[in-house]
Simulated scan of single mutants.
Amino acid sequence: MTVDRILPTEEAAELLGLARDLAQGELAPRVDDHEQRGEFPREILRTLGRAGMLGLPYPESDGGSGQPYEVYLQVLETFAGSWLAVAEAVSVHVLSCFPIAVAGTGRQRKTLPELLGGELLGAYALSEPQGGSDAAGLTTTAVRDGDEYRVTGTKAWITHAGNADFYSIFCRTGGPGPDGISCLVADAGTPGLLPQAPERLMGLRSSPPAQIVLDDARIGVDRLVGAEGGGFRIAMQALDSGRLGIAACAVGLAQAAVDHAASYAKQRTQFGKPLAAFQGLGFLLADMATQVSAARALMLSAARLKDAGRPFSVEAAKAKLFATDTAMRVTTDAVQVLGGYGYVSDHPVERWFREAKVLQIVEGTNQIQRLVIARDLTRS
Rank of each mutant, 00 (worst) to 15 (best):
Gly245Pro: 06
Val258Gly: 08
Ala238Ile: 02
Ala227Asn: 10
Val251Ile: 11
Met236Lys: 15
Gly242Thr: 02
Ala248Leu: 04
Ala250Glu: 00
Tyr264Ile: 03
Gly252Leu: 01
Ala227Val: 07
Ala261Pro: 15
Cys249Phe: 01
Arg233Met: 08
Gly242Gln: 10
Ala227Thr: 09
Ala254His: 11
Ala235His: 05
Ser241Arg: 15
Gly226His: 13
Gly230Leu: 07
Gly245Trp: 02
Gly252Trp: 02
Leu224Gly: 11
Phe232Glu: 06
Ala254Asn: 11
Ser263Ala: 13
Ala261Asp: 12
Ile234Asp: 12
Ile246Thr: 15
Ala254Phe: 12
Gly242Ile: 01
Gln237Lys: 07
Glu228Pro: 00
Ala235Arg: 09
Ser241Ala: 14
Leu253Arg: 08
Arg243Ile: 01
Ala227Leu: 10
Met236Cys: 00
Gln255Val: 00
Glu228Ala: 09
Met236Ile: 12
Gly230His: 08
Asp259Arg: 09
Cys249His: 05
Arg243His: 03
Val258Pro: 13
Arg233Leu: 10
Gly226Trp: 10
Arg243Val: 01
Leu239Arg: 14
Val258Leu: 02
Ile234Leu: 13
Leu224Trp: 11
Val258Ser: 07
Arg233Asp: 15
Tyr264Ser: 07
Gln255Phe: 01
Ile234Pro: 09
Leu244Lys: 03
Gln237Pro: 00
Ala261Lys: 10
Val251Trp: 07
Arg233Ile: 01
Glu228Lys: 02
Ile246Gly: 04
Ser263Glu: 15
Asp259Gln: 11
Glu228Arg: 10
Ile234Lys: 09
Ile234Val: 13
Ala227Tyr: 07
Val251Lys: 06
Ala256Arg: 15
Cys249Ile: 00
Gln255Trp: 14
Ala247Glu: 03
His260Met: 03
Arg223Asn: 14
Leu244Gly: 04
Asp240His: 11
Ala256Gly: 12
Ala238Tyr: 05
Ala248Cys: 06
Tyr264Thr: 09
Leu244Met: 15
Ala247Tyr: 01
Gly231Arg: 02
Asp259Tyr: 10
Gly242Phe: 07
Ser241Phe: 12
Val251Tyr: 13
Gly231Ser: 03
Tyr264Met: 03
Gly229Met: 07
Asp240Val: 05
Ser241Val: 09
Ile234Thr: 14
Leu224Phe: 12
Ala261Gln: 08
Gly226Asn: 09
Gln237Gly: 11
Ala247Cys: 08
Ala262Thr: 15
Gly226Ile: 02
Gly252Met: 04
Cys249Asp: 04
Arg233Val: 07
Val225Ser: 13
Ala257Asp: 11
Phe232Asp: 03
Gly252Glu: 06
Asp240Tyr: 03
Asp259Met: 01
Gly229Ala: 12
Ser241Ile: 09
Ser241Pro: 01
Val258Trp: 11
Leu239His: 09
Ile234Gln: 14
Ala261Gly: 14
Gln255Glu: 14
Leu239Ile: 13
Ser263Asp: 15
Gly245Phe: 02
Leu239Lys: 11
Ala254Glu: 07
Val251Asp: 07
Gly230Ala: 06
Ala248Thr: 03
Phe232Ser: 09
Gly226Ala: 13
Phe232Tyr: 15
Val258Met: 03
Ala261Ser: 14
Ala261His: 14
Cys249Gln: 03
Gln237Met: 10
Arg233Gly: 11
Val258Glu: 06
Ala235Gly: 14
Arg223Pro: 02
Ile234His: 08
Ala254Met: 11
